[in-house]
Design a binder for these strands. Structure first.
Lengths: 338, 338
DNA sequence: GTGAAAGCGCTAACAA
DNA sequence: TTGTTAGCGCTTTCAC
């Protein structure tokens, strides 16, 4: 029972026809005899013939495959993005080659390489947290591979982009805390070299300024994972107590939820004593106790739009440098943590 | 700036050498002049030459790609499986082509087709909930493509398998509830045509019998998603009240957590009045209120082991029908919901 | 030490 | 209406 894929040539030999006739018969070429067509098609179906996609791609110089480089599939936002991409891609006859960089620069470089090697028709990418050098992506782009960045973009490469208005999202979240009466607001932030990190921090700062609250650098803490929260626990609790913190805006939901758990364990009542807002609105937000008020980020739509832009470019190869940026404006999802 | 991948032939032409010489030079063939080698290699590096993986695969009759068919990436268990698979695959020079069936039979058929078309060297698969006909997989398997089932297996196809001892896991969970004093235990179950569904139900029943508790069919409710819980809310609350339910064993964590939320909203105290156990131990379990006692299922290890079995088979094509089944025995993760 | 030629599976221009 | 040929990018046998 070894690998025995039947080829077009096999069919030709058995049916005593030429490969080209078989090829044409299978794709209903007008000047093939109806009789022959029927013969070929029936036989092909019977032996379950499937054309070799590799050979096709090589021939056509088109793989009908698009590459996706994504930081971590476990995050709900990213897995929603994948669904958005796939749903559109499938409908258009494209396959998606998913690579998980695991937030690891080295892996991202290898992934890019692999996609280029496989001659994908285009690449969708959200860069890893640890990526600071973009030559691997630049090279692929200069090589002529259409590329669309989503969520975590690289500003050095001019191309299509799909982003969330992180500044606005953070501004909304922080303003909401202020409206609810908070005046000493902590921000648990992502690394500032990531645009989403700095934009969310800027939105937070601007909201404070707009409400005549002072911006204190020590209120902006680099801490963007659940684990990070637990490792900074003592520092956070000390700061919260000494500075009378009454609101926290975290750069993502799991950080926000971990913060709530640490605070509750220390005896704080949420939202009475401290109010918390997250960012993302994954399923965790509903499960958290209390359910988390958070900024709703549209993963599925982001993926879909990124794929749409890429398809548009693939179908119009002469678009040139007419790049577009799609911005999703997030909204606040009110729950009981504020 | 159009697609301009440089080929081996291009290099040969520019360097005024034959393609074969360039090919050999690049792979350090012994009888190529050192001088020539240096020349070729330097030039190849300079122009960033990358061999076309498609051409290579076609030539070698091996793609070094394995296909993965997975129900839903959003579930933590499955995304962990992916990581386990990828980590091993990468190390061995394999790429993974991930297809998400979305629990949809039609999609699973198309995915299988696509993987066969791409001539993947092997397939790892966990079947969708809605799949009842397995001909698509059978055909691929009979075509000689090595296949490993994980978690949700198909019993009709004899091949390598990686599974969790679902019976045991359910038995442990239910016994734990009984030990904690529960005597009227509900089971929120997965569809019974899925082996994991029936095995977990059987484990639940057996635990009841082993403890001289009666098995009531109306205590076994088909309900395996968060949404399902909310739609059955009234029925569940009625049943719980009328039958004095004091324990719930749910087939997965999100169902368990949703049940806790419904119960709490109805005024029940967990774990005092009703104790709840889940299955899976994803990150939700820690976030839930109260944190969820659950059966720990090893996603990463499952993926890794499935990939290991597949690699073993790829490297030993003459293994024949010497199939193996790896069973992971789950353990109980104690938290505050029981 | 290097090159010519054939072939992996497929298609399409050109011939018949 | 069907067949022949060449070629997509690569490797490898055989010849020189």
């Amino acid at each position: 029972m070894k690998s025995n894929h039947i080829t077009l040539k096999d069919i030709a030999r058995i049916l005593e026809l030429s490969p080209s006739t078989v090829s044409r018969a299978l794709k209903d070429h007008p000047d093939i005899n109806e009789e022959t067509k029927r013969l070929v098609k029936t036989f092909a179906k019977k032996v379950n013939y499937r054309p070799n996609a590799l050979a096709l791609s090589l021939r056509r110089q088109k793989t009908n495959t698009i590459g996706l480089i994504i930081p971590e599939i476990v995050h709900h936002f990213f897995s929603s993005v994948i669904s958005g991409i796939e749903d559109l891609a499938y409908g258009e006859g494209y396959n998606v080659m998913i690579c998980q960089s695991n937030e690891n620069y080295q892996r991202e470089v290898i992934d890019t390489q692999a996609l280029v090697d496989h001659r994908v028709d285009g690449i969708l990418v959200s860069v890893s947290k640890t990526t600071k050098d973009f030559t691997h992506l630049k090279r692929a782009h200069e090589n002529g591979i259409p590329m669309v960045f989503f969520d975590r973009v690289c500003e050095d490469i001019t191309t299509d982009r799909v982003i969330t208005d992180d500044f606005k999202g953070a501004h909304i979240a922080t303003s909401h805390l202020i409206e609810r009466g908070c005046s000493n607001i902590l921000h648990l932030a992502a690394p500032q070299h990531l645009i989403i990190g700095s934009q969310r921090a800027e939105g937070y700062k601007q909201a404070l300024k707009d409400n005549n609250l002072s911006v204190k650098e020590e209120f902006l803490i680099k801490c963007d994972t659940r684990e990070y929260v637990f490792s900074l626990k003592d520092h956070l609790l000390k700061l919260i107590k000494e500075q009378n913190i009454d609101g926290i805006f975290a750069v993502n939901d799991s950080t926000a939820i971990a913060a709530m758990q640490v605070l509750q364990a220390a005896g704080y009542d949420i939202p009475r004593q401290i109010k918390v807002v997250g960012f993302g609105d994954g399923p965790n937000a509903e499960i958290a106790y209390p359910p988390l008020t958070t900024v709703e980020q549209k993963g599925y739509e982001t993926g879909r739009e990124a794929m749409r832009l890429l398809l548009h470019r693939l179908e119009n190869p002469d678009l040139g440098i007419d790049y577009s940026t799609k911005v999703f404006t997030p909204t606040l999802k009110l729950r009981q943590s504020t």
